[in-house]
Design a binder for these strands. Structure first.
Length: 592
RNA sequence: GUGGGCGUAGCUCAGCUGGAUAGAGCAUCGGUUUUCUAAACCGACGGUCGGGGGUUCGAGUCCCUCCGCCCAUGCCA
């Protein structure tokens, strides 16, 4: 068996090939190789069971046949992997100590992992639409998930070889500008005079404005008129708008830096304002768009929910009845631009769960439109997530019921982490405790967001996320810090090559080694549905296997062979943990 | 009404798309340190997987049917 980054893939490819040449199987046989429970082996193939069922064959006999064919093929060197038949027809694969050891020596540092993982998405151009913040509003807790999940997914795709473009599709052209400009004019505000926290003041102006609109239709009309003037290029409104956007960008930049969010381009909705006409024209010409109640809409009769004869009409509204564009218009113009200008093979959108209908309609419309025009059709993916809940299981808010400001959340995370660090490690200088607290605090916040399945709501709990027990950032960071400490005391570079190690011996060493070689499986699985919690679970299990090993097997023993092999396990664990944490956007620490 | 998500241990969550005896952490109880960071480790306790039916060698996972919660549902994004 080849010494590949992902042994599971090698097994799968080999089995598929062997089955294809065997009379008892057919081309469509899927081996279904996956990591196994350690008590059975390292990998298992479950595919025979399903296959036997579909053919009405005896699964165990069939599995026996495949196993023998595999052994005869010469593709499974007994010195590297042991095959066995189990239960109703599972085939188990157990890597030999030799193989584990060779793998650990072959895949030694971050660049080895990068090379191995880099084949997964090689050559793909992926545009990632995030964090797509609003303009003229302060960032609040609702902006946490797009920043955290978006950054993690972007890093993951980068790591796996994709050529990514992080496109910050800001909402700088929405209806809210009508309201905001209306209110600015009403109050006679000079935007250049706003000094302290200008974004907060814009936020307030908007709130006041929309409060007024609530029970005054004439004010609502006024706002709509201001919006239309802006969209038609009125110089006064354009100048106001530019200033608002600048204020917003500057404020968000500070947050992006703290959050470790990296952006390649910021092309907001305004960028597409002269590109929506083409969308209207092409969709109308091709017969996809038509007028309905004064608006321009697209019906999708092939999907019940969006069909025109549905009991509750739910068209894709691409131009409002007042002639103004909306987010459907700009999203259509945007995807065209991403394909034509950036040659995107895939576009990944990151938003919360509530926008699923919109993206379903957007994707349907894009496919039909692009097919009709013979434009390249990109893969599209909507990566969505649930709500952050308080302990009462309702959306997490302040006691007075307002949304929590993101900056306040970050500050509290760092402050709480600082208290903990000071409690545990009072002898460290304050500046270092502050640095540690920032990594631990922000890291804990991010990890809490990433470690549960993103499609579900999760309960926000400071104490749990900052705990050193359980599936948390501090637990993982602590594991890294302990490894660093060993190398520091031994006066060794954890990234330097290690020579003269003896072969693995104890159960805890083996358990750790087996966990290490399952990194590629974890990456694969994470990438499948872009679910970072899969990677989190893996890292947590790895840190757990390390802690068990650390407690059971002393590293700095006298015997040089034993010492070196344990140091090697420490070094590998460290590299994998650091690599994983960085993929999640969490900064590892030398000590804590 | 329709569509989406969900219901797993007292609490917070996993469960790799139908696989082997349903797993972690917290909490509770008990144990481990002259040893590299005990911010750790080990063990015990804890489950009619919302209820009921079905499909099959096999169901937390798929189908049907109820119960309950969250979200979306024509011009905000």
């Amino acid at each position: 068996m080849e010494l590949h980054f992902n042994p599971g893939t090698v097994i799968e490819v080999a089995l598929r090939q062997i089955a294809a040449m065997n009379n008892a199987f057919s081309e469509d046989f899927e081996p279904e190789v996956r990591p196994a429970d350690p008590k059975f082996g390292d990998f298992q193939a479950n595919g025979v069971l399903g296959f036997a069922k579909s053919k009405g064959a005896n699964p165990r006999a069939l599995a026996q046949q495949l196993l023998e064919a595999a052994q005869e093929s010469g593709q499974f060197d007994p010195a590297r992997v042991e095959l066995s038949l189990a239960g109703p027809g599972f085939i188990n694969f157990k890597c030999t100590p030799r193989y584990l050891w060779d793998w650990l020596n072959r895949y030694a540092d971050a660049s080895d992992f990068q090379t191995g993982a880099g084949k997964l998405q090689a050559g793909r151009k992926v545009v990632i639409d995030y964090p797509s913040a609003n303009t003229a509003k302060q960032a609040h807790i609702g902006h946490l998930r797009p920043m955290v999940i978006g950054e993690a997914i972007a890093r993951l795709l980068d790591f796996c070889g994709a050529e990514t473009l992080r496109d910050n599709h800001i909402g700088d052209w929405g209806t809210n500008f009508g309201t905001l400009i209306m209110q600015i004019k009403r109050e006679g505000i000079d935007l250049n005079q706003l000094v302290t926290d200008p974004l907060a003041q814009l936020d307030q102006l908007y709130k006041d404005g929309s409060a007024l609109e609530k029970d005054a239709p004439e004010i609502r009309d006024q706002s709509r008129a201001e919006l239309l003037k802006l969209q038609e290029g009125d110089p006064e409104n354009t100048a106001l708008w530019e200033r608002i956007v600048d204020i917003s960008k500057a404020a968000f930049e500070t947050l992006y830096q703290q959050m470790g969010v990296r952006i390649d381009v910021t092309l907001g909705e305004s960028f597409y304002r002269d590109k929506v006409e083409r969308v209207y024209r092409e969709l109308t010409e091709d017969g996809f768009a038509e007028s309905s109640e004064g608006a321009l809409v697209v019906w999708h009769d092939d999907v019940k929910k969006f069909a025109r004869d549905n009991e509750r009409p739910y068209p894709f509204n691409i131009r409002k009845k007042d002639g103004a564009s909306n987010y459907a218009s700009t999203d259509l113009a945007t995807i065209l631009y991403r394909v034509e200008h950036y040659k995107a093979d895939e576009v990944v959108y990151l938003t919360d769960a509530r926008q699923q209908d919109h993206f379903q309609q957007l994707f349907l419309t894009t496919q039909k439109w692009f097919a009709a025009r013979k434009y390249p059709i990109p893969d599209t993916r909507h990566v969505w997530w649930g709500t952050i809940l308080g302990k009462d299981k309702k959306p997490f808010k302040t006691k007075s019921g307002e949304s929590i400001k993101l900056q306040a959340l970050l500050d509290e995370a760092c402050e709480r982490a600082f208290t903990v660090v000071t409690e545990k490690n009072p002898e460290l200088p304050e500046s270092e405790r502050r640095t540690i607290a920032e990594s631990v605090g922000i890291g804990a916040l991010k990890y809490a967001d990433l470690s549960s399945n993103r499609t579900q709501d999760y309960v926000f709990d400071w104490d749990r996320m900052l705990s050193f027990e359980g599936n948390t950032a501090p637990y993982l960071l602590y594991a890294v810090a302990r490894i660093n400490s060993i190398f520091r005391k031994a006066e060794l570079d954890p990234e330097a090559p290690l020579e003269g190690a003896s072969l693995l011996e104890t159960d805890t060493e083996f358990a750790l080694a087996r966990k290490l070689i399952s990194l590629p499986s974890a990456l694969n699985l994470t990438l499948n549905d872009l679910r970072p919690h899969v990677l989190c679970t893996y890292l947590y299990e790895l840190a757990g296997a390390y802690s068990t090993f650390y407690n059971a097997d002393k590293v700095m023993v006298d015997d040089p062979g034993t010492r070196t092999r344990r140091l090697l396990l420490c070094a590998r664990t460290r590299t994998v943990l650091i690599t994983g944490l960085k993929l999640l956007g969490i900064q590892p620490l030398e000590r804590m």
